[in-house]
């Protein structure tokens, strides 16, 4: 590399640097809010892992106002009916994983939510007001208090 090329390179770099500083100066509010938002997201991820990071042992099925618990270690097929004994959903517990096998709602979003195996994860069915969640027994009792 000869000297002239080097000097042009340095000049170009200075121009880029000045432009970069200008851009940052003009967009200070934008950049600040973006950094705050990114910190917020990271903080929420950390908080979540802080609250829910154990291996779950209980499957909690909340359907309307009834709450039932099943052990995660035992394989199980649970049919969910409404008060008129109309069959709605089928929840399957197998090998430490839980999933919604069948649903009679039109969108089948609960089936698309796949298999869950970590503490805190849930399968949600909005039309039938069902929520299947994985928890650790005796963990965070204040959460259960809120649930009632």
């Amino acid at each position: 590399m000869n000297a002239r090329a080097f000097i042009t390179l340095v000049q170009e770099l200075t121009v880029i640097k000045v432009k970069f500083k200008q851009t940052i100066k003009n967009n200070r509010a934008n950049i600040t809010i973006l950094i705050i938002l990114i910190f917020l997201i990271v903080a929420f991820f950390l908080a979540r892992n802080f609250f829910w990071s154990d291996t779950p042992d209980t499957v909690v099925i909340q359907h309307n106002d009834s709450i039932k618990e099943y052990p995660l270690s035992e394989d199980n097929d649970i049919a969910i009916m409404d008060i008129l004994n109309n069959y709605h959903n089928l929840v399957i517990i197998k090998d430490g994983k839980v999933w919604m096998e069948k649903a009679d709602c039109p969108d089948k979003l609960c089936m698309k939510q796949g298999k869950i195996s970590k503490e805190g994860q849930s399968i949600v069915c909005l039309p039938h007001k069902i929520i299947v969640s994985l928890r650790k027994k005796g963990h965070s009792p204040e959460m259960d208090a809120v649930a009632k």
């Binding site: 929420f44 991820f45 908080a47 809120v146």
Partner: peptide, 15 residues
Amino acid sequence: FGTPYLLYYLPVLLL
């Protein structure tokens, strides 16, 4: 749903 357990998905949804 009357449960805080859905907040598990808040970070992912924020992202």
